[in-house]
Design a binder for these strands. Structure first.
Length: 248
DNA sequence: AATCGCGCCAACCGCAGAAAC
DNA sequence: TGTTTCTGCGGTTGGCGCGAT
C-alpha cells in the first residue's frame, strides 16, 4: 500500500509521505496557499517535486476531505455519472464534495466496476472505451464551459470548493441549488475563519475576485532575502499541525 | 506455520492543454 | 508565432494486509 521511500536523479524524494512532510505541506499551503506547486516544496522545506506535493494535498491533506466508507448515495452518483461520462474522474469527483478523483477512481476499480457490470451485463469494455475515446474532446469543452484557470487554485479552501462549485455550473438546476447551498456554507465558514484571523489575512494571499496569475503577489526569489515565506516555517506554527489530530 | 494470491489504495508516470514568455 | 513552463488528468504500478489453502 505504501511505496518504499527513494530519491530520483534530482535528489527529490519519492514514495510514502511521512507525518513530518505532511505537517510541513499542510502548514505551508494553509498559511500561504498553493501559489506555485513547482516552487512550493522549496519554500515549504520539502525535498519533493511539486507534482507530488499537489497530489498529496489534493488527495489527502486538503480540508474537508472524506476518506473511505462510501454511502449508497455516493455509489449511485458515481455509477450514474460514470455511465454518462466514462472515466472522467475529476468531473465525477466534482459531484461528490470531499472526494478526490484519485479516490473515486480507486473505489471504482475496486468495487463499483463489478457492480456496474452486474447492473449492465451487456456493457462491454469496448463501449467503455468508446466513451473514453472522445474524453479529451469532452474534457476540453467542459473546461471551456467552466472557464476556471488552473492557476486560480490560490487558497486551500478555494481548492476544496473548486470542484463542487465548478461541477454545479454544468449540473441540473436541482443539483445547482444543492451545490449553491454548499457554497453558502463554505462562505459562512470562510467568514468565520476570516474573523478569527486565519490565513485569509496572511501575506501572499489576495482577494478571491482576481482571475489572472499575474494579479496576485507571490514570494519572489528576490523577496526571499527580505521576507522568506519559509522554507523553514516556525516550529510553533508547524507543531500546530499534529496530524494525529488532523481532522479538517 | 508458511506461502500464495488477491484486494486495496497511495503514489508515480506520461501526456495534453493553458498560460507565460 | 513558436517555445517553454506549469498544472491537472487519467492510467498504471508498488507493496502491504489479509484470507485461503
Amino acid at each position: 500500500m505504501v511505496r518504499t521511500p527513494s530519491y530520483d536523479e534530482n535528489g527529490k524524494k519519492k514514495g510514502t509521505w511521512t507525518p513530518e512532510e505532511d505537517r510541513k505541506l499542510a502548514a505551508y499551503v494553509t498559511k500561504y496557499g498553493c501559489w506555485n506547486w513547482r516552487q512550493l516544496p522549496k519554500y515549504a522545506g520539502l525535498a519533493r517535486c511539486g507534482k507530488s506535493c499537489r497530489l498529496r494535498w489534493m488527495n489527502y491533506l486538503r480540508p474537508n476531505i472524506k476518506r473511505g466508507n462510501y454511502t449508497k448515495e455516493e455509489d449511485d452518483i458515481i455509477l450514474k455519472l460514470h455511465a454518462q461520462l466514462g472515466n472522467r474522474w475529476s468531473i465525477i469527483a466534482g459531484h461528490l464534495p470531499g472526494r478526490s478523483d484519485n479516490e473515486i477512481k480507486n473505489h471504482w476499480h475496486t468495487s463499483l466496476k463489478k457492480r456496474a457490470n452486474h447492473y449492465a451485463p451487456n456493457s462491454s469494455d469496448s463501449e467503455s472505451k468508446s466513451i473514453n475515446q472522445d474524453s479529451s474532446t469532452r474534457r476540453k469543452s467542459v473546461e471551456n464551459q467552466n472557464a476556471i484557470s488552473p492557476n486560480n487554485c490560490m487558497r486551500s479552501y478555494e481548492t476544496v470548493l473548486e470542484s463542487s462549485h465548478m461541477s454545479a455550473k454544468q449540473s441540473s438546476s436541482e443539483e445547482l441549488s444543492s451545490y449553491t447551498t454548499d457554497y453558502q456554507v463554505f462562505q459562512e465558514e470562510a467568514i468565520l475563519m476570516e474573523n478569527s484571523g486565519s490565513f485569509w489575512t496572511e501575506p501572499f494571499l489576495v482577494d478571491s475576485s482576481f482571475s489572472s496569475r499575474t494579479d496576485y503577489v507571490v514570494p519572489s526569489i528576490d523577496c526571499e532575502l527580505v521576507c522568506p515565506p519559509s522554507p523553514f516555517i516556525g516550529h510553533e506554527f508547524l507543531s500546530s499541525f499534529d496530524l494525529d489530530d488532523y481532522n479538517w
